[in-house]
Amino acid sequence: MSRLNWATAVATFGGLGLAIWMLGRTGLAQTFGVLSNIGFGGFTLFILSYLTVLLALGAAWSTARRRPHDHFPVFVWARAVREAANDLLPFSQIGGLVLGLRTLTVAGVPPVQAYAATIIDLTTEIASQLLLVLIGVGVAIHFVVEARAYADLRITIWVGVALLGLLTASVLFLRTPMLRFATKMADRLVPAASAVIDDVRGELARFEANRFAIVPSFFWNLIAWLLSVFCVWLALRLLGHPIDPLRALALEALISVIRSSAFLIPGAIGAQEAGYVVLAGVFGMDPQAALALSLLKRARDFTIGVPSLLIWQFGLFGSAERRAQRL
C-alpha cells in the first residue's frame, strides 16, 4: 500500500471516529429525534430540491464549450455520476472527474471537447465558490459582530466583501490569465489529457475567442451554489429548526471550505459533522439540529449516489459488451 493510500485510510477511519464521537457528544437520541421530524414526504421534497442543483451543475458543464446545447442531458447525467463519486468514493475529487469524463466520452462527446469543457467548468466552479465563500464569511462576521454589539464594523465588513467579490468576478473577464490557468489545470488535473494536450489547448483557445464565453458557466455554477443554500434552508425548515436565508448561505459557504480541506476523506466524513456542530452556535442553531442536517445530507447523497454509480457501472459494462460484439 502506497503512502497516499495509507494516508487516505488513516484519514477515513479518523473521520469515522470523529463522526461517531460527535454523535455521542451531541446526543444520539436527541439528534435522531430532530431527524425524524422530516418524515418521508419531507425527505422526498429534499431529494427533489437537490435535483435542481444537479441540473444547474450539468448546465454549467455543458455551457463550458462552443456548442452548449449538444448532449445537455449527458452532461447532467455525467455530473450526477461525478457528484456521486465525490461523495462516496476514495480520492473523491479525482475519482469524480475520471468517472464524469468517461461518462461523457462513452456517450459520444469528443474527448477533446470533454477535457476542455471540464477545465473551464472547474475554473468557473472555483471562481463561483470563492465568491460565495467571501460573501458567506462576510455574513458570518456580520452576525458575530452584531451579537457582540460592534455595529460600527458592519459597514466595513460589507464593503470589504463587496470589493473582494468584484475582484473575483473581474477574473472572468481577463481572458489571457484565465486561459493560462485553464491550460495549467489541463496539464495537472485532467486524466489522460496529456496525449492530446495541444488539441485541448486549441479547443480552449477557440472557446476563449469570445470574451464573454466563460460567463454562462460561471453563473450556472453560482446558481448551483445558491440552490444548494436553498436546499439547506429547506432542510432546516423541514427538520423544525428554521434559520433565515443569509445564515443558511454563510453556513453552507463555510462548510464548503471545510469539505474542500478534507479532500483525502471520502465525502469529508467526520469533518463535515464537526464543522456543522462547531458553527451551529454562530448561526443560532442547536447542535442536534446541525448534526441532523449533516446526517440528512449524507442520506441524500447515499440515496442518489449509490443508484447513480450502479447505473453508471452497468451502463459502461453494457457499452463495452456491445462494442465487443461488433468486433
Score class of each variant (00 low, 15 high):
96 G>Q: 14
31 T>S: 01
125 E>Y: 14
9 A>Q: 06
114 A>T: 04
226 L>V: 04
220 W>M: 07
224 A>N: 03
71 H>F: 15
317 F>T: 13
176 T>N: 12
244 D>N: 13
58 G>T: 04
87 D>P: 08
207 F>N: 07
86 N>D: 07
71 H>P: 03
263 F>G: 07
204 L>V: 07
286 D>M: 04
226 L>R: 08
23 L>N: 00
296 L>M: 12
261 S>I: 11
17 G>P: 00
280 A>M: 03
82 R>K: 13
166 L>N: 08
175 R>S: 07
205 A>N: 15
310 L>E: 12
261 S>L: 11
100 G>I: 00
205 A>F: 05
145 V>P: 04
169 A>H: 07
163 L>V: 12
142 H>T: 14
99 L>W: 11
182 A>I: 15
321 E>M: 14
249 L>F: 05
78 A>M: 11
189 L>S: 06
184 K>C: 09
1 M>W: 14
280 A>R: 01
189 L>H: 07
26 T>D: 03
63 T>G: 00
55 L>T: 10
112 V>C: 10
109 V>W: 04
37 N>C: 03
306 V>F: 04
104 L>K: 05
116 A>F: 00
170 S>F: 15
54 L>S: 02
44 T>F: 13
141 I>E: 07
91 F>S: 10
185 M>D: 07
267 G>S: 07
73 P>T: 09
274 A>V: 01
195 A>M: 11
241 H>Q: 11
115 Y>P: 05
264 L>H: 01
281 G>I: 02
70 D>E: 15
313 Q>A: 15
231 C>Q: 15
279 L>Q: 02
215 V>N: 04
52 T>N: 13
103 T>H: 09
267 G>T: 12
50 Y>D: 10
199 D>S: 15
174 L>H: 02
244 D>A: 14
112 V>F: 11
198 D>M: 13
178 M>T: 12
243 I>V: 08
211 R>K: 09
23 L>C: 04
130 L>I: 07
170 S>A: 12
77 W>D: 08
189 L>T: 02
101 L>N: 08
127 A>W: 01
41 G>F: 12
15 G>L: 08
